[in-house]
Design a protein around this nucleic acid. Structure first.
Ligand code: ZN
Ligand code: ZN
Ligand code: ZN
Ligand code: ZN
Lengths: 152, 152
DNA sequence: ATAATATATGTTATGTTATAACATTGCAAC
DNA sequence: GTTGCAATGTTATAACATAACATATATTAT
């Protein structure tokens, strides 16, 4: 799993800014700060880690609701995902691409990757249909070891 | 999604007893109690709900570690699964069948169902291989509405 | 049987993750 | 300028989970 370049990270932030502008979504200072922290970390980040970073940046201690509200906004708009298996948050690298996002998470180096194959989505859809089930959201988190970590 | 019959629930408990016997796994009183609570609820159960029930059954208040240890034992041996998306625990209805278990969870009636299609497993494997990723465990939790709830 | 060992449980305290509830601020519309 | 609304600040607490150490119970070796 290759880690993302600074350019890719900045592009993602830029893309989200544009989406917010054209959709009149209030990307306020805190929301933007939280998003940048998540994206630039480039690994799954914990809410209280974000809280610490926010407190540092703004040179005064913030409180949990501040961070969780920003996260909620970012998730609602598809800019950030929560990884339920590790209670952490990651940036989406194709926001508004209208995909469900699935994840590979390396337990060793903590790098993650979105893996939103259509074939996977289709297979999940078929399973749901087969069970007469209407999907509202899907959590697919594949934990294991990436190539690099597996070779060591 | 049909809810399971008493017979099915009892069969599951019996099966686990047999597995424990033949594998010399200590299905102690508390572990058995916790397993029965999870299975007989027949819905995703929260750790602190289990704690309450255990306290009632044994007529004295128990503590979180008691329940979490029992849950750990049951998960390690494949008798119980954790649903990460809702911090809840469910019984496995094909213990030791050597499958990864995937789940459909109805947000309305809270019924769940295992849906461990091989085709789904294959599709996930292929995705992992494609990314040079070695899977250690997979979380697949599909939330939405079951047939009954969708028709209402 | 007794001691040594390992396994399981009890108990207290605390760590981690997340939300409720209500007050305050900033800004736009009327 | 006051009404309305969205966002943030603040305090407190709820919900979920584990660390650390003491005690009890079961196995096993002598
Ligand atoms: Zn995404
Ligand atoms: Zn790795
Ligand atoms: Zn199962
Ligand atoms: Zn339902």
């Amino acid at each position: 799993m290759k880690t993302k370049s600074t350019t890719e990270l900045n592009d993602t932030i830029y893309k989200v800014e544009q989406i917010c502008k054209s959709n009149k979504l209030g990307l306020t200072q805190i929301r933007r700060q939280v998003f940048e922290i998540i994206v630039k970390n480039n690994k799954p980040v914990k809410a209280y880690e974000i809280l610490d970073e926010i407190s540092n940046i703004n040179d005064k201690s913030s409180h949990p609701p501040t961070v969780y509200r920003a996260i909620d906004f970012l998730i609602e708009n598809g800019f950030v995902h929560k990884l339920n298996s590790i209670n952490s948050y990651v940036g989406c690298f194709h926001p508004k691409a209208n995909k469900e996002c699935y994840f590979l998470i390396c337990k060793k180096c903590n790098i993650y990757q979105e893996c939103c194959d259509d074939s996977l989505k289709d297979r999940i859809s078929k399973t749901a249909v087969h069970h007469n089930f209407v999907i509202s959201n899907t959590t697919l988190e594949i934990e294991g070891h990436c190539l690099d970590c597996n070779q060591k």
